[in-house]
Nucleic acid binder design. Sequence first.
DNA 1: AGCGCAATGTAGCCAAAGCTATATTCAAGT
DNA 2: ACTTGAATATAGCTTTGGCTACATTGCGCT
Lengths: 138, 138
Amino acid sequence: MPEEPTQALRFGKARTARSAALLEDYVELIADLLAAHGEARAIDVAKRLGVTHPTAIKSIARLKREGLATARPYRGIFLTEAGRKLADRVRARHRLVVKLLLAVGVPAEAAEADAEGMEHHASEATLKAFARFLARAK
Amino acid sequence: MPEEPTQALRFGKARTARSAALLEDYVELIADLLAAHGEARAIDVAKRLGVTHPTAIKSIARLKREGLATARPYRGIFLTEAGRKLADRVRARHRLVVKLLLAVGVPAEAAEADAEGMEHHASEATLKAFARFLARAK
DNA sequence: AGCGCAATGTAGCCAAAGCTATATTCAAGT
DNA sequence: ACTTGAATATAGCTTTGGCTACATTGCGCT
Ligand SMILES: [Mn+2]
Ligand SMILES: [Mn+2]
Ligand SMILES: [Mn+2]
Ligand SMILES: [Mn+2]
């Protein structure tokens, strides 16, 4: 068993990542919708995430509070500069995690599904290692 | 972008995994403490997880409600048969995820820390692939 | 036996993330 | 211009998982 303080730090990191996961998924999805359709309506975000629209609207309010998004009523959602930055990082990370899973032989649908949760826990060190592995094993 | 219903299913799976994560970490930790010290006191669980003891006690109450643990007051926590089963699965999964991360070149501390969060999102298909990869790349 | 400290437990607060139900607003079609 | 349906917003409830502050219990020592 690991040392107590070490282990507490690890669990703490996992909790932090868990609480950031929701915002990350939202900005990534909003960026995708903006890229694909030129707009991101709350109701589409809700459908894509599989939640009800009040839930989506409440989370989008949190995005606004945290300076990641803006929304003109009945005009859809837009990302701030910070939101776009985050979306870019998150999307790149997502893709890298999926690629790594595929590279070690995980079936495509499982890779996509599991990456949706795992991505939020991949630290910089891990992502670097993934990139090196993929370059080497190419 | 993936199809809407597919994507909603993936996000739903991630949400389910996230909400199971806490219970999984608790039973794994309790099993480790029982193995290492013959008992698992609430306060030690709290210290290891890096939360306050009322938080730990409340979560342990949830474990009891869900039939995973029992506790005689001032006597520490014990796992039910279901709890032990879950702990075994969770521990095996944890180890496998760590091993996979190490095998692709993730530094040890990052592997341990990231696995603490990622493990909860590794599906059966993914775990199987990890095992095959490790056997092959041995 | 009794004291005092540590462990345990309880109460009560908060924010996040889900839901249903209801109200409001917009925009399209007649 | 009206109507009406869909999108958006609000209200209010629940559970989870954090916290602090306080109360109780049990045990080891003297
Ligand atoms: Mn995700
Ligand atoms: Mn993602
Ligand atoms: Mn874990
Ligand atoms: Mn674990």
